[in-house]
């Protein structure tokens, strides 16, 4: 086969072994936006198909968890939630925590759970973990609105809670939490294509991490040397900042917040780098 001069060299796609390049193709991602929306839609509508209550289950879960915390930790174990009404404190804590943990859990199984699709057709692999982040966020918003209703009650009816202007920063802190769960998720899924050991560690680790995050105990109730375990957890300052804005109680620490933001950016870049590398070849080892 003689290569003629008609090879002008402007190829649309070049498939190479592509070792170690950090190209995050945003243009391609945009082309596949419809697929992203389809995955999100699928996640939302398949979860509660053939159930009577349907999406109501989204709010039942955090409500029951909060009530359980109320009984076990507040009433029986007598752990104070500071000046915040316990139900409000537990509800925002579990809602935020569930979002983080669920997103991390689902995205960390991207490669192993979707091997059959990935083995048959190409699309930017990052679409899948992103779709999990988005569908999880929709679920979060539904749960958050339950919290918002309760919050409005405490602000306007019982007048025991006073939010402040820092609540305007909430979307920013949420974004950092979203990106952090995505970053951890794609790193873990990339590492588990070859070595499955991590999966066990993650399931266990996420459970434990909740106790080092102010979900049950407010940071203000943690004293002494134990406090450092909470603070090095990048979620702590974010959770506290969100509570500070919405409930008026919490610790807003700019230094630790900066730490969380930098931490997230570093891990996200690292995650995209590893994910890009693994996605090209994982089907051979999965």
């Amino acid at each position: 086969m003689a290569h003629k001069t008609n090879d002008v060299g402007n190829w649309d796609t070049v498939i190479t072994s592509g070792r170690g390049n950090l190209d995050f193709n945003l243009k391609e991602l945009w082309q596949y936006r419809d697929l992203l929306m389809m995955f999100v839609k699928k996640d939302i509508i398949t979860v509660y198909k053939q159930t009577i209550l349907g999406p109501v289950w989204f709010v039942v879960q955090p409500l029951l968890t909060s009530l359980m915390f109320l009984v076990v930790f507040n009433s029986i174990a007598n752990i104070s939630t500071g000046a915040v009404p316990p139900i409000l404190f537990y509800l925002i804590g579990t809602t935020l925590w569930n979002y983080f943990a669920d997103t991390l859990n689902t995205t960390s199984k991207t490669f192993t759970d979707n091997a059959s699709i990935f083995g048959k057709v190409y699309f930017p692999r990052i679409i899948l973990p992103i779709s999990k982040v988005v569908s999880g966020f929709i679920k979060f918003l539904i749960q958050f609105s339950l919290f918002a209703v309760l919050l409005l009650y405490y602000v306007f009816v019982s007048k025991s809670i006073m939010p402040n202007w820092y609540l305007l920063l909430t979307p920013l802190w949420l974004l950092v939490i979203i990106l952090m769960s995505l970053a951890f998720g794609i790193i873990i899924t990339s590492l588990t294509t070859k070595y499955r050991d991590l999966i066990f560690l993650v399931a266990f680790g996420v459970q434990l991490a909740m106790y080092a995050t102010p979900v049950i105990i407010p940071l203000s109730e943690v004293h002494g040397r134990k406090k450092i375990f909470f603070l090095v957890n990048p979620l702590t300052s974010l959770f506290e900042a969100i509570k500070y804005g919405l409930l008026g109680k919490g610790e807003f620490d700019a230094g630790w917040l900066l730490y969380s933001v930098v931490f997230t950016i570093v891990f996200l870049v690292l995650g995209i780098f590893i994910f890009n590398k693994v996605e090209k070849r994982f089907i051979d080892t999965v």
């Binding site: 190829w11 070049v14 072994s17 089907i283």
Partner: peptide, 19 residues
């Protein structure tokens, strides 16, 4: 699989024009 971009080649390249 390589043409479909399901997996990458160990060496070499495939260049494609069009969708």
């Amino acid at each position: 699989k390589i043409l479909s971009r399901v997996t990458a080649p160990t060496q070499g390249a495939i260049k494609i024009k069009g969708r």
